[in-house]
Simulated assay, not measured.
Amino acid sequence: MNKILPLLFLLVFPFQIYAQTVPYRIFNLQGEEVSFEQMAEEAAEKQVVLFGELHNNSIAHWLQLQLLKSLHERGEGLVFGGEFFEADDQLSLDEWFGDLINEKNLEAEVKLWNNYQTDYKPLVQYAKSNDIPFVATNVPRKYASAVSRGGLEVLEDFSEEAKLFIAPLPIEIDRELPGYVGMKEMMHGSHMNAEHMVAAQALKDATMAYFILKGLDGMEQFYHINGSYHSNNYEGIVWYLKHYEEGLSIMTITVEEKGVMDIDEETRAKANFIIVLPTDSPKSY
Rank of each mutant, 00 (worst) to 15 (best):
P122D: 03
P122S: 09
V124L: 13
A127P: 04
S129H: 08
D131C: 10
D131N: 01
D131V: 01
P133K: 07
V135A: 07
N138I: 11
N138T: 12
V139Y: 05
R141S: 08
R141D: 04
Y143P: 04
Y143T: 06
Y143Q: 02
A144Q: 08
S145T: 10
A146I: 02
V147N: 04
S148I: 08
S148T: 04
S148W: 07
G150K: 14
L152P: 12
E153C: 11
V154F: 13
E156R: 07
D157S: 15
D157L: 15
F158I: 06
S159I: 00
K163A: 05
K163D: 13
L164T: 11
F165H: 10
I166N: 03
A167K: 04
A167V: 14
A167M: 12
P170T: 01
I171E: 02
E172S: 07
E172F: 12
E172Y: 13
I173C: 14
D174Q: 02
D174K: 05
E176P: 01
P178D: 09
G179H: 05
G179C: 06
Y180H: 06
V181K: 10
V181P: 10
G182K: 05
G182E: 03
M183E: 13
K184E: 04
E185S: 02
E185I: 00
S190T: 06
S190Y: 00
H191M: 15
M192G: 12
M192Q: 04
M192W: 05
N193C: 01
E195H: 01
M197S: 15
M197Q: 04
A200Y: 07
Q201W: 09
A202S: 12
L203P: 00
Y210N: 13
F211E: 13
I212H: 12
L213P: 07
L213E: 11
L213V: 03
K214P: 02
G215I: 10
L216H: 09
G218P: 08
